[in-house]
Amino acid sequence: MGAQLTQYLLTGVTIGAIYALVALGFSIIYNASHVINFAQGEFVMIGGMTTVSLVDGGVPLPLAIAAAVLVAAAVGLALEKLAIERARGASVVTLIIITIGASIFLRGLAQLVWDKNFHALRPFTGDTPIAVLGATILPQSLWVIGVTIAIVAALGWFFARTLAGKAMLAASHNRLAAELVGIRVRHVLLLAFGLSAAVGAMAGILTAPITLTSYDVGLMLALKGFAAAILGGLGSGAGAVVGGLTLGILESLGAGFISSAYKDVFAFVIMLAVLFFRPSGLFAARSAERV
């Protein structure tokens, strides 16, 4: 029982880390624009699929990963430049609908560029399970957890310590004041899409050896990541991480102890429960505003 529980927890943390990365992607764009980017899952897919085809084409793995992140970031920038920026002045709902369109378009494009099959990326460093407290963990899971920690730390440092990061926060909080201190607000949005796409792509690359990847892998991951972001409170970095981990662990425990057939149900039950009882999320930004 103890070993089983450990096993479920380890699996849950691994999946949860991926959800956390996807949720972070949502939060970055939401913070900069109040847009929920429904093409977030497609960034994940582009990351995984590009890496797979580059590796199949003989490119060394580290190089393929770097290239895939750049490709996804470029797609993110293009989405902002060609679709979101053109609709400047449109309502947030319109922009959200544009991202739904972009998501469908990118999925269709991926079917043309690649195919409809599942693809596997080989694990970064072998697939010999490592024994931990009576349970086992795959080396790839350690990669997932380690890289997620590194990305979360890097983002935390960027937003808390650098002037550029603070400028992004400032622009999202008060667009007018940001413009008046000379921040180019349009560049902030562009940066948010690029950054968010890069983070999403990393999630897709890390998970490709575990769950396989295909043109529509982004659909479910985006929904789970969105549920995680809602759970933690949209726009909160810490919330995205806690929300992702909570969701991953609950899903894994539920699949293990109840039934794996209901694996996906848990995410949505949690999302609905949060929307009913605590719509601003567990980590809703405590507003410190005085009027």
Partner: peptide
């Protein structure tokens, strides 16, 4: 129109953003 969620010092530093 201060940046409410940022500290006083961060607000000032952002004033020198350019």
């Amino acid at each position: 129109q201060v940046f409410a969620p940022l500290t006083v010092e961060d607000n000032l530093r952002l004033g020198a953003y350019r």
